[in-house]
């Protein structure tokens, strides 16, 4: 039995004993949601990849089996109204049996900028990580990159991952949090960059950082000193230009918007037209 916490934010909430299945019915039926976020998985496990599995394992270790199953049902039924994965937290709105939806949040410790810079440096030196992530997969050895700077990519336990929900259930996670977690797992399946975003670095920043540090790894241009042996001549085949294809020399001009300046009564663009006609002659 995991330690139960009272939520300090809602001190006046009615207290119920741990609800059994029969009494659970007393909460009434969940209110159906239109256009809710429904899990893709219709049966069995949710979360196909090993990395979303690592994330869900933290929840499963808490041993609240029944709630996880009900959360799964919620996730499949589309009870989650909205969900955002941001640096440091997942925030979601879940429709339960009460008219007012609950707010659920799964927090995470973000990594410091220095740590991310070290990770970006490692990514820049070894394109495999970025290639694999961009290709939609978390590379097997990604955790090692974080381990080298003393970090763990996945939370090691619930302590690193504070969860709370505005519902009356004392259990953590409640079925609402569980539903959110399952949907997050599917998001991770689809876009492994979201794990990194949750940990504090969004995709754009990360890739820009990698680019910047890649340039530090050396010049992209072949140094002259390396091509002394073919110094005076072409270093490869010249493109075959063929014969110029006679075509419409005004095609590009036609695609351009007006210049917004009148010349002799028409837009300046039309004043340029004779020049383009001349080019094609």
């Amino acid at each position: 039995m995991p330690p139960r916490r009272r939520r300090p934010t809602e001190p006046f909430r009615e207290k119920f004993p741990e609800p059994g299945p029969d009494r659970f019915e007393g909460y009434g039926k969940r209110i159906a949601v239109e256009d809710g976020i429904a899990a893709r998985s219709r049966r069995g496990a949710i979360g196909e990849s090993w990395w979303s599995g690592r994330f869900l394992a933290v929840l499963e270790k808490l041993g609240v089996g029944g709630r996880l199953d009900r959360g799964k049902t919620y996730a499949r039924a589309g009870q989650v109204v909205d969900l955002a994965i941001d640096p440091g937290e997942v925030v979601a709105t879940v429709q339960g049996s009460r008219s007012e939806p609950y707010r659920a949040r799964i927090g995470i410790t973000t990594f410091a900028d220095e740590a991310w810079e070290a990770v970006e440096g490692a990514f820049a030196a070894d394109s495999w990580y970025a290639a694999s992530l961009l290709g939609g997969t978390v590379p097997d050895d990604l955790e090692e990159v974080f381990a080298r700077v003393g970090l763990s990519l996945f939370p090691t336990g619930a302590r690193e991952m504070p969860m709370d929900c505005s519902c009356p259930d004392w259990s953590v996670p409640c079925k609402h949090l569980a539903a959110v977690a399952y949907l997050v797992a599917e998001r991770f399946d689809d876009d492994p960059f979201l794990i990194l975003r949750w940990r504090g670095r969004d995709r754009t920043t990360l890739l820009a950082g990698i680019r910047e540090r890649r340039d530090d790894t050396g010049p992209a241009v072949t140094p002259l000193a390396q091509v002394v042996d073919r110094f005076w001549s072409a270093g490869g085949p010249l493109p075959d230009l063929g014969r110029p294809v006679p075509g419409n020399s005004e095609e590009l001009l036609d695609q351009m918007p007006p210049l917004g300046v009148a010349v002799d009564g028409t837009d300046a663009r039309e004043a340029l037209r004779p020049f383009y006609r001349r080019f094609g002659l």
Partner: peptide
């Protein structure tokens, strides 16, 4: 084509 020129540019041109 422009890219191929860049690849083929004799080092002497950018010396």
């Amino acid at each position: 084509a422009a890219d191929a020129f860049a690849a083929a540019l004799p080092p002497a041109v950018r010396a």
